[in-house]
Design a protein around this nucleic acid. Sequence first.
DNA 1: TGTCCGATTGGT
DNA 2: CCAATCGGACAG
Length: 203
Amino acid sequence: MPLTKGRKLPHEFYTRSNVLKVARDLLGKLLVVPDANGNRVSGMIVEVEAYRGPEDRASHAYGGRRTNRTETMYRSGGVAYVYFVYGMYYQFNVVSNAANIPHAILVRALQPVEGIEIMRQRRHSHPDRNLTNGPGKLCIAMGIDKQLDGADLLGSHVWLEDFEKISASRTAKGARIGIDYAEEWIEKPWRFWIRDNAFVSRQ
DNA sequence: TGTCCGATTGGT
DNA sequence: CCAATCGGACAG
């Protein structure tokens, strides 16, 4: 696939069956969410985690769990799965694969690119390096909440664009974070990040 | 309806 | 290390 900066990623990017590949390929892509005035607020994806329900104990769709919350993960790839955790944070995921296969990729960190002043206002007094270096933080900075759950990633509210080509040598992988309950799935190296990037949540 | 807990964060 | 804070999942 040629890298054409500024173009929305096509549907075929998301519907591929290998969620690890889709996750890896999200590194270097630009996440764009226009604000209420239509201003572009965006950041380059620098850290992600793949969740491979129904066999993945760490996934909300483990065991084929199909509830009000997980319903969007069962849609065809190319929509957003946004959920609320810990009583105060939203988490933004990209749904992949075909309909009824609940695969998703959690976006864990971004490097701010456009609308940084808007991000600063939303994140209050935090220094710039803490604007988007975590899954909850980036949702605050980007203005992502439950309203975007199920949003079409080729629509006008939230989408992804080609941005920077990330070579294999610049990527790293390791165990996912915050899934201590996932037993043998805890150690799967399904977290991918851009090596040495200052906005990755943890090295 | 009641209980338990979380794909996190920020402060001690 | 630990509290904050509340919706989701599930048992009864």
